[in-house]
Design a protein around this nucleic acid. Structure first.
Length: 611
RNA sequence: GGGGCUGUAGCUCAGCUUGGUUAGAGUGCCGCACUGUCACUGCGGAGGUCGCGGGUUCGAGCCCCGUCAGCCCCGCCA
């Protein structure tokens, strides 16, 4: 386990020294040999040889071995050391010494030096821990439920401490970056107005105003725009956001965003800020980001990769095979094309080596996203093989661009269905053929998003991003004729198929904002009721402005190689939205509810008042 | 809201397929011994609501139904 102090210890002389200790245990080196030091830390492990007692002492910086030997340790200290239980907190005093030659193995967790103990005092007795902090090599982690229930113990593990340390450093790098560019870190309210945007709000009842509620913010979106109206010019915040949606490995009900907004900017300015930020954050993690970051239009991303968050670490680009199939007497393709769909697919170089079973699995994952089935073709011995082959004219193999040994996976249907299925198929193939280079980082900006999307059921327009997103100026004329074709001044940053963040330029003109609300079918009165305070701001004279928000937790997760957001958040919630350590949520006293003017429906339980 | 996986000692797991004597292992814990260990070693010991409830059966950790919890996915979510 590597020291977590080496990278975090500031360049001050004795950062660790306090009234009770002189050094960090894990930071002692050969240079300290001969020093009389005092340490404080946790008993990681104890090895009692009878006449000799060794203790691995752990603090934030790492481990050091305490050597208790009657030659230098008083008898009562020997006895105390022999009785130490795991995770007990002790203060020790002694001399730093080089370890005897044969045992001076720097690869040992307790390294080259040890402490010859002359004094030892238990200051924080500990119960036997219900889950182990000191794990043996290859020992499995305890069940996640137990890790979350006993979170303090879990947080003692160097792995989690390293994640939180990295998180801290990335946050500081973010702050330095924006500070240097003149951005002000300004806090926004946590108790705000309920603003339905699709996601569910967490509501907080008002005691003072019966029947009225605050909401926890889903993001500081409206407030940051108002900062621009106020003339603060450049704002950022590492902001907590709340959304009452179901969880995933990469989703928590409360999460942290790097939230940014700036005035008198164009798209290039904002993309530049985002690019510089990513450069600074990745640099802090020791990774150089190649700039400028590649850009791809939304339409191209969907056409070539089937997704607005394409993974560019491998090829397998989607191509259109509709013209090859159009003349063919092949009912699957024919009916799809007749219904306005297309035949699209991917060529897998050397993919003929995939087994039938593997391709079946790939098909199953495509089907799980709504695809009817996957057509397979492969070129083997110059002959096109596979289900659709006999319906295709000779030479179809080269028309499809296939080489010997290639596999071709095709889907027929509307893009709405085939795109996500092909995206999934790309990933499944890449994983099975090991096409993803280790350590590759492929950033891409996705630009030219549509302003609206149509609800497939009702045909109603909905904002692709949010209703304050500005249209591309050249597309303004489309608002009256074909609004679904209008593009937005919006952008997302994608890394390796994961969306890191996104943003847009906002509408500064109240009349354009009114027009957008009109297209969205939001009556003026409703708009005023929901977003009145933003609209009032716009009417007060708003500068052109725009910004973005990036998911901090997700960034830390990627850079710390964690599998779950829960490993980069100190006190996370379970997938059922419970905090096992604190025991939240919890029923409350009936009297407290009454004071909030709330009553539970039948089935709800509250605590009986004892007042 | 829907689907899947998991739940046995403090912890990690075996036992379940094919119901049948006293439910095992490693580790941790307790005791004894041990002067250079570092996953210390050796000997001994304690430790079980087989998640919970119901059912089938002469008999259930094992089969069936329900339920709770954790995780993963779809829906939802930027």
């Amino acid at each position: 386990m590597s020291s977590i102090a080496s990278s975090s210890t500031p360049k001050r002389a004795k950062p660790a020294a306090t009234a009770l200790r002189t050094h960090l245990a894990g930071a002692l080196t050969r240079a300290d040999v001969g020093r009389e030091v005092r340490l404080g830390g946790w008993v990681h492990r104890r090895r009692d040889l009878g006449g000799l007692v060794f203790v691995d002492l752990r603090d934030r910086a790492g481990l050091v071995q305490l050597s208790c030997n009657p030659a230098w340790t008083p008898p009562e200290v020997m006895a105390r050391a022999a009785g130490l239980g795991a995770e007990t907190v002790v203060l020790v005093r002694g001399t730093v010494e080089l370890r005897p030659e044969p045992s001076r193995d720097p690869s040992l967790v307790s390294r080259e030096v040890e402490l010859h103990v002359t004094g030892l005092e238990v200051v924080g007795p500990a119960q036997t821990p219900p889950i182990p902090v000191a794990r043996k090599e290859k020992e499995e982690l305890p069940a996640e439920e137990l890790r979350l229930r006993h979170r303090v113990l879990d947080l003692r593990r160097p792995e989690l401490q390293r994640n939180l340390l990295l998180r801290h450093r990335l946050m500081q790098a973010t702050r330095r970056y924006f500070d240097h560019l003149g951005f002000l870190e300004i806090e926004t309210p946590i108790l705000t107005k309920p603003t339905p945007e699709g996601a569910r709000d967490y509501l907080v009842p008002s005691r003072v105003h019966p029947g009225e509620f605050f909401a926890l913010p889903q993001s500081p979106q409206l407030y940051k725009q108002l900062f621009m109206v106020a003339g603060l010019d450049r704002y950022f915040q590492i902001a907590r956001c709340f959304r009452d949606e179901d969880l995933r490995a990469d989703r928590q009900p409360e999460f942290t965003q790097i939230d940014v907004e700036a005035s008198f900017v164009g798209v290039e300015d904002v993309l530049g800020f985002g690019e510089g930020m990513v450069e600074a954050i990745w640099a802090e993690a020791g990774i150089t980001v190649e700039t400028p970051i590649e850009r791809m239009r939304y339409a191209d991303a969907l056409e070539r990769y089937g997704s607005d968050k394409p993974d560019l670490r491998f090829g397998l680009e989607i191509f259109d095979a509709t013209e090859v199939f159009r003349p063919a007497d092949f009912s699957i393709a024919r009916s799809a094309i007749a219904a306005g769909g297309r035949v699209r697919g991917i060529r897998v170089p050397g993919g003929a080596s995939l087994t039938r079973k593997q391709v079946d699995e790939i098909e199953a994952s495509a089907k799980s996203l709504g695809a009817a089935g996957v057509l397979r073709l492969k070129l083997s011995g110059g002959v096109l093989e596979g289900g659709p082959a006999k319906h295709l004219p000779s030479g179809a193999g080269s028309a499809l661009g296939l080489s010997e040994g290639d596999l071709c996976l095709l889907l027929a249907g509307p893009d709405r269905v085939t795109s996500p299925a092909l995206d999934r198929a790309r990933q499944e193939v890449a994983r099975r053929l090991d096409l993803i280079p280790q350590g590759a980082t492929r950033f891409v900006w996705i630009v030219d998003f549509p302003l609206f999307e149509r609800d497939p059921a009702t045909g109603a327009l909905a904002p692709m991003n949010h209703p304050f997103t500005a249209p591309v100026p050249e597309d303004l004329h489309l608002l009256g004729t074909a609004p679904e074709r209008a593009r937005a001044l919006a952008y997302d940053m994608v890394l390796n198929g994961t969306e890191l963040g996104g943003g847009s330029l906002r509408i500064a003109d109240p009349s354009l904002q009114r027009r957008i609300f009109g297209l969205l079918g939001i009556p003026e009165a409703v708009a005023e009721q929901r977003f009145g305070f933003l609209l009032e701001g716009l009417r007060a004279g708003a500068p052109p402005h725009g910004g973005f928000a990036f998911g901090m937790d997700r960034i830390v997760m990627l850079l710390s190689d964690a599998d779950s957001l829960r490993d980069v958040i100190a006190f996370p919630k379970t997938t059922a939205q419970r905090a096992l350590f604190e025991g939240a949520p919890a029923p409350v006293d009936a009297a407290d509810l009454a004071e909030l003017h709330l009553e539970l429906k039948q089935g709800g339980k509250c605590v009986k008042s004892e007042k």
